[in-house]
Nucleic acid binder design. Structure first.
Length: 676
DNA sequence: GAATCACGCATTTTT
DNA sequence: TGCGTGATTC
């Protein structure tokens, strides 16, 4: 046994050590916020391998790429030089993808399937809706898609979509459900839900396949177990087999994704589900001062359905939590901004040490304005921007067609982008022809000459376009030729000219072109890094991974972030803002089953992000959608023990001493901005 | 095909 | 209130 790893294990606290050393049979590690969870997981993997388990036999599953990447890095540095291959550490989705790539033919799909992301799904549903001539504009495509996905995941009370759902969305979703599935299959495409669902189907219908995986993965670990949904639960359950060397790590108190299908019941009934399970509680917190933990404990103990856990620390109490009532959201924002200036100046902190955390992204606005006014640099996390760049989606659609000519949807999308005179009517005719002949749209393109209702000139254009795509297929199949091929593609279709044409200002067009370049760049990088590079592999990486690895070091300044995205992060100074009833707890959650408990957990997550100082604020009046409404402090504030709180006055009037401080701090911000 | 207008909508988000 | 979408119009 390696002395270095055993030395590291000896330095763990008793509970952590217990979790690391208990390797056989089901184990639930209840890891409180800041209790050294990642350390335990990685150490456990290292320990398993160190004691002789082959790294091939170990599987660790996470939810996000970021978590997987982090874990992979830590495991590999811990085992440096000891092993030649890392264990499989991957997200649910990429794990299933890997399994399906090998085995999907067992259930009647083709191996070269394409992955559809949310926006692909959305445009498919949009197309289906226009096929059946839905004129009712009150039905949103998003709602229909959501309902279909919900049904697929079996999260309706019973299977499929209930007949009793008589509302428009329900009825429409029901009638489109099978069309959706058929279209996906015809396109040789698979959506995010399918990755898991089809793997489950595969395992159910082909026990011999399942057996191979059960036999291979002898030690399984699942991170963030409280976030698993019922499909993921079943998947894990099957993989764990009879052996049940399954270690799940999570925190029921941080289950905040119930609204998208996560089932907190999975973690709560782990002991029942996996007979003989051992439970280890990690309650010693290494992140926060005592008062912060007391506040967190005070709030969360009001939830009834939980495993029960109470955080403690050896770090001492630290400063009390400051509670500030503010007149309105503008003064709340201003107060926070001024406070950040002063604290940074007086305590020699960096702007990176601060975070402003809120329930809903739209609350960030006033804070951004106040910070700008105060000359404080900041980064807003969240919003949905990365996946939505039109030019990237365009090029990706080209690649999808080249990789999978059966993908009618993507072909449709690129047929007239850039414009080549293939309008809606022509495409409609081609689509009809394809349907009649039972062929793909691409094959229909290649036979455009046979259509009598399309004139010769137009048919020639279609044929030309099909030939263009077809000619590109070969270079994309050659190893190491993809970067050249994409440049060729961009040139051939005149994409850059098209961008200049479409976007009026030079700046916007230039930005778009920059994105195009970076897309090319990422393909070339993929090709360089990946010895077994294929176009399919690249598209997969695009769909399944964030591809934004470099953005982390760009972020600088105060972090503005939603409660949900703050999970897993920590900051020396945290401002929990907008702590009002109707916001946290959110008004829509108050009357839904289990909604209030989840809001409380959200509050718990927020509090436990703070390492040293925590400020909680709320307003007397809040203008929403134009109207001024009186607001009440969040009911969760009442659950914080009084002795940990320091209540501040409502008065915004600063004493002279204070304004002096403010001025000094302000000028210090300007200096900081100038870079000294 | 672009500009303009009116309307509706307004938690949370990853793969 | 403020934004994004879809329809309308030139």
């Amino acid at each position: 046994m390696s002395s270095r790893i055993s030395h590291e294990i000896h330095r763990l606290n008793p509970r952590q050590k217990e979790a690391v050393l208990y390797t056989e049979g089901p184990l639930l590690v209840l890891a409180g916020a800041g209790s050294g969870k990642t350390k335990v997981i990685t150490m456990r993997v290292a320990h398993l391998i160190d004691k002789g388990v082959s790294s091939d036999e170990v599987l660790a599953v996470t939810f996000t790429n970021k978590a997987a990447r982090e874990m992979r890095e830590r495991v590999s540095s811990m085992l440096k030089g000891k092993i030649d291959s890392l264990p499989v550490i991957s997200t649910f989705h990429s794990l299933c993808m890997r399994i399906l790539r090998k085995e999907i033919e067992h259930i009647g799909y083709r191996k070269d399937f394409t992955i559809y992301d949310t926006s692909d799904q959305l445009s498919l549903v949009r197309n289906l809706m226009s096929d059946v001539k839905v004129l009712d504009k009150s039905v949103k495509v998003e709602s229909v898609m959501e309902r279909i996905s919900w049904a697929k995941n079996g999260m309706n009370a019973s299977k499929d979509i209930e007949d009793s759902e008589t509302d428009d969305v329900g009825a429409l979703s029901r009638s489109l459900y099978s069309r959706y599935q058929e279209a996906m299959k015809a396109f040789n495409a698979v959506d995010f839900d399918d990755l898991l669902l089809l793997t489950l189907k595969l395992f159910r219908e082909h026990p011999e396949v399942l057996e191979r995986y059960v036999d291979r993965f002898r030690y399984i670990m699942v991170d963030e177990y409280q976030d698993t949904n019922s499909i993921q639960y079943q998947f894990i359950r099957m993989l764990a087999g009879e052996r049940m060397n399954l270690c799940v790590v999570g925190d029921d108190d941080q289950s905040i994704y119930g609204w998208r299908g996560a089932d907190i019941g999975n973690i709560l009934s782990f002991e029942k589900d996996f007979a003989g399970a051992k439970v280890v509680r990690l309650e010693q917190n290494y992140r926060s001062f005592g008062y912060i933990l007391k506040a967190a404990n005070g709030v969360i103990k009001n939830n009834s359905k939980r495993m029960g856990k109470s955080l403690w620390t050896e770090r001492g109490l630290g400063p009390k939590i400051k509670l500030s009532p503010c007149a309105d959201k503008e003064s709340e924002a201003q107060q926070v901004a001024e406070r950040i200036s002063i604290i940074r100046y007086e305590k020699k902190r960096k702007f990176d040490d601060f975070a402003i955390i809120y329930r809903a992204n739209l609350l960030s606005r006033p804070f951004e304005e106040a910070l700008r006014k105060e000359r404080i640099p900041y980064t807003v996390i969240g919003g949905t921007s990365y996946f939505e760049r039109k030019e990237i989606k365009d090029l990706a659609a080209y690649l999808k067609v080249i990789a999978n000519p059966a993908d009618d949807l993507s072909l449709l999308k690129i047929s007239n982008t850039p414009r080549r005179g293939l309008g809606a009517t022509t495409l409609e005719k081609l689509a009809n022809f394809a349907r009649e002949e039972g062929i793909s749209l691409f094959d229909a393109f290649k036979r455009a000459g046979e259509l009598e209702n399309i004139n010769e000139k137009l048919a020639f254009k279609v044929l030309e376009f099909a030939a263009l795509l077809e000619n590109l297929m070969a270079p994309f199949k050659c190893k190491g030729k993809m970067t050249g091929a994409i440049k060729e593609l961009i040139r051939e279709i005149g994409y850059k000219d098209y961008l200049f044409e479409v976007y009026k200002t030079v700046e916007v067009a230039a930005r778009k072109i920059e994105n195009v370049e970076s897309f090319t760049e990422s393909l070339s990088q993929y090709e360089l890094e990946e010895p077994e590079s294929t176009l399919q592999g690249f598209l997969e990486a695009m769909a399944l991974t964030d591809m934004e690895e470099s953005k982390e070091d760009e972020s600088y300044g105060v972090t503005l972030i939603s409660l949900h995205s703050s999970k897993g992060l920590e900051f020396p100074v945290v401002f929990l803002v907008g702590m009002e009833d109707g916001i946290l707890p959110h008004k829509k959650s108050i009357f839904t089953e289990g909604g209030l408990d989840e809001e409380r957990r959200l509050c718990y997550v927020g509090i436990t992000r703070a390492m040293e100082e925590l400020y909680i604020s709320h307003t007397d009046f809040r203008s929403k959608y134009g109207k001024d409404e009186p607001s009440t402090p969040s009911r969760f504030i009442d659950e914080i023990p009084d002795e940990v709180l320091e209540r501040e006055n409502d008065s915004q009037l600063a004493d002279p001493d204070d304004s002096d401080k403010k001025a000094k701090a302000f000028f210090a911000n300007i200096h900081a901005m100038l870079g000294d």
